[in-house]
């Protein structure tokens, strides 16, 4: 495609639109098809869990770090899991250095909400001692190459990272008033329950399609991201200036549950559980 630039040429816009109308895409996908996912897990030795996920040419590396801290006063027996995203300037000439912009905050928030409301991370299991010490998990996503649809790739990346987790197990020492290591670890299967997937659709005029690539993302009027678990919708984010009819949303809800099931089966993320040491 044309170089990655903020402005997309008119002929490219016409080209994408006229082909989408014929249900054709330049990369030979149907309207409801994903690009290929490629997943590697636990590749960062310094992190407590990690994943390298590619969706077509989009690539995100995510790592997990933990800290032990005091719980929030209103949730004294629950740990915390936070998601951060950084759009590295290596990933695209569109990305600039500096503090996180709107796009990276949206990415982190949508992925975070998908995980939070899906009963994915068992925050109660992240408690070491009520009111005193809980785990704080940091899931940090780094975008390595930007070729559209960061949210879906980020969702899978964050999930795989949590699944591949291997975190030192702590026990509360009442006398010293501090957390000690038991010498053991706990793993992804101990904290991850539901597996939420987020599915993003682009909309141009009245055509809706799954997994927008970069040129499609640049020309589309708007996007909608829907997070689903096995049988529930857990979060929705509409972005961009597109508007969706009620029927369209109903249709997308239906499709998302269907595609979520398919993705869950195809990716089989539980294969990335950390090997028990």
């Amino acid at each position: 495609m044309m170089d990655v630039k903020r402005i997309i040429s008119k002929i490219e816009k016409d080209y994408i639109l006229s082909n989408l109308k014929k249900e054709e895409r330049i990369d030979n996908r149907g309207l409801w098809e994903y690009r290929e996912f490629q997943i590697n897990s636990d590749l960062i030795a310094s992190a407590e869990g990690s994943a390298d996920v590619s969706l077509g040419d989009t690539r995100i590396i995510t790592g997990l770090k933990y800290d032990v801290g005091a719980p929030f006063p209103d949730l004294p027996d629950e740990g915390v899991c936070t998601v951060m995203a950084e759009l590295l300037p290596i990933a695209s000439p569109l990305f600039e250095r500096g503090p996180p912009g709107e796009q990276s905050i949206e990415l982190a928030r949508v992925v975070d909400r998908g995980i939070r409301h899906a009963d994915c991370v068992q925050t109660k299991k992240l408690c070491i001692k009520e009111k005193e010490a809980v785990y704080i998990l940091f899931v940090d996503m780094y975008v390595i190459n930007y070729a559209g649809n960061l949210i879906d790739a980020g969702g899978v990346s964050a999930l795989t990272t949590l699944i591949s987790a291997h975190i030192p197990e702590g026990i509360w020492n009442e006398e010293k008033h501090e957390t000690e290591w038991t010498g053991k670890y706990f793993y992804g299967q101990d904290i991850v329950n539901e597996l939420p997937f987020v599915l993003t659709y682009g909309k141009i005029e009245d055509i809706i399609f799954l997994d927008p690539s970069l040129p499609e993302e640049l020309v589309c009027d708007g996007k909608i991201s829907i997070s689903v678990t096995e049988n529930k919708i857990t979060s929705i984010q509409k972005s961009g200036s597109a508007t969706f009819s009620i029927d369209e949303i109903k249709m997308l809800g239906n499709k998302s549950l269907e595609f979520g099931k398919k993705l869950r089966k195809e990716l089989n993320l539980l294969q990335y559980l950390a090997k028990t040491k």
């Binding site: 495609m1 170089d3 040429s9 002929i11 490219e12 080209y15």
Partner: peptide
Amino acid sequence: KKVGGIVIS
């Protein structure tokens, strides 16, 4: 001006 088609790099 070019009308129609597509540009690749």
